[in-house]
Nucleic acid binder design. Sequence first.
DNA 1: ACTTTAAATAGAACTCATTTCTATTTAAGT
DNA 2: ACTTAAATAGAAATGAGTTCTATTTAAAGT
Lengths: 147, 147
Amino acid sequence: MNTDFSTILRSLNLKITPKRIAILDILMNESSYLSPEEIWTRMKKQFRSVGLPTIYRNLEELSERNIISKVTHPNRQLYYYFCANRSHHHHFVCLSCRNVEDINFCALDELRREVKRKHNGKVISHILQVNGYCRNCLNKEGKDNEI
Amino acid sequence: MNTDFSTILRSLNLKITPKRIAILDILMNESSYLSPEEIWTRMKKQFRSVGLPTIYRNLEELSERNIISKVTHPNRQLYYYFCANRSHHHHFVCLSCRNVEDINFCALDELRREVKRKHNGKVISHILQVNGYCRNCLNKEGKDNEI
DNA sequence: ACTTTAAATAGAACTCATTTCTATTTAAGT
DNA sequence: ACTTAAATAGAAATGAGTTCTATTTAAAGT
Ligand SMILES: [Zn+2]
Ligand SMILES: [Zn+2]
Ligand SMILES: [Zn+2]
Ligand SMILES: [Zn+2]
């Protein structure tokens, strides 16, 4: 695992620091999206001292470089998750348990075509995210179904 | 126009107040998305006293009731716009001039099917937004092309 | 191993968009 | 006009996220 992270970080010209590896490790071993504070809480168990700005900074760097992704959450706070799927895709996000699953569907081509044809504009980026409740949470019959 | 607003507000069981009408009026006569503060600035020209919380509260109420829409912006601040198109659709948002145009395309059905089939989950909401540069801004050749 | 240097970090302080609170005003139904 | 719940102003608070600076550290070169 460790070697894995090192390779990733080296290829990005980021220094291989224990904090960076720990952040990646936490995200990779979690199927839900996490907030910076939640990651911080876990980090504090591993390091005698670690600053919240370090968490924010690293998460931002890693997401800028597309190693991790951001969730667009109704409460407008930041959440991140790691997805091993390196090809372009989108996500089905559970509003209850925060589980994230891949959706291998993207209408980007059609969107780009429509934007080009009707508005003569240029597409730079797109957001596509599906929010709902996953199987497990549906089975729990609405328990804990908070956003 | 005014009658229009009244009808809308009445049908939502919202009181018809001058501030509400002014907020709707500002948004309807603007093809770009606006921040609460920008709306406040315009409101202060029309009212001797008006509080920023009133703007925030009304924008939230109106968007909850689907009269106006939120923009998902990279800077994570709130922006709103009014769209006359009452049927389900999405938007092409210019990152430079903030112009908003309708995209009459939505993959919701396919997404719902994939989520149902592969994950056995339930779709509650979805976000689809295309960011880019509109014709006008492209013609300006990159001038002012800030996010 | 030792030196050097730029990148990374800790911790404190700060920012400012958004929210909360409370007293007052107002829309609208009787 | 009277009543009442909704809406508002203004002040104050909140808190997620950012900035700043001194210190530490990764890693490249010797
Ligand atoms: Zn994924
Ligand atoms: Zn896509
Ligand atoms: Zn529209
Ligand atoms: Zn849709």
